[in-house]
Amino acid sequence: MTQPRPPMKPTRDPRVTLDDLVEVLLNKGAVLHLDLIVAVADIPLIGVSLRAAIAGMETMLEYGMLRQWDESTRAWAERSAGRRELELRAGETLVTRMSGGHLLEEGVYTGWRPGGVHLTDQRLVVLRRDPREVLFEAGVRDLRTVQLETETTVGGEQRTRLRVATLDGRTALLSAADPHGLHDALSSLNPALTALPPAPQGAPPGGLEGHLWYQEPRRGGPLWRGGKGRLGPTGLVWKSPLDARPGLVLVPEEILGARVEPGRSPGGDGQLVVVETASHGEVTLAAEEPRRWAAALDATAAPEGTAGTAHPPGTPGAVV
């Protein structure tokens, strides 16, 4: 074994941290930002492409906070705020607008690009604000089908997307804050549109999926956090909606056994699910159906004798 390396030291070198500082100091919400004091906070920095957020500018315009600034600043601010929205054609009416995105599928590259989903009586447009770009656009009359699709993310979260297909054969997958509402609005705008039934999507075969509480060990004592649990052939994954990635990943080799124990918990009628693990000791969970989870986890546990070859956390478990 080599010597463990010394502790890493954080850096404050502006050459390294500059982008982060710009983000933290210009971005509203990260630093103290209080009503009365912000007489001119968030003022547009003219010509600054890195302005992290002009959020709050509309509010300022609304409250006349920019009144004392010169006309050109004010005009710029109004233009910028206005530019965030879709420009409507003559006679066009905005039906609904929500945040969402468009899945770019170009060759092997796929990636979600966030933007505002605008539905007018004529068009469906996904518009990115900054830099401004139309990510997707189709005439409402040019749409052939719409279909709700539910996908489960790696973290086990379920997200409903909207798949649209046009008469000329294009398809696109859109995300939207209210996919059902968008689906209904589209269907009523274009009666010729075929609304396909939701695409089937099941729980992982032989697995279990649902709301699960995880007792996260914290410096100040364990903290119950709610999230989504998913148990499948690759093990148990738990993710909080507040985190970007799962907070708990147990590959099958990591799980030695599971049992139900009485205890105080946010769910499961005073019953806890205690999972014995190879390298983290006991992991405590709570679920609406603790026995079901405990049984399924116990069934996932590696048979006696294989635990010695457990993968260290973070390496993918062998999938047969």
Binding site: V154, R245, V249, P316
Partner: peptide, 23 residues
């Protein structure tokens, strides 16, 4: 999958040391 595993591991170890952690 690798990223998920590392995230869970690191987050657990950091949460035991720090007072607050925010994505």
């Amino acid at each position: 999958r690798l990223a998920d595993g590392i995230h869970a591991d690191v987050r657990r170890r950091l949460a035991a040391v720090v007072e607050d952690i925010r994505d």
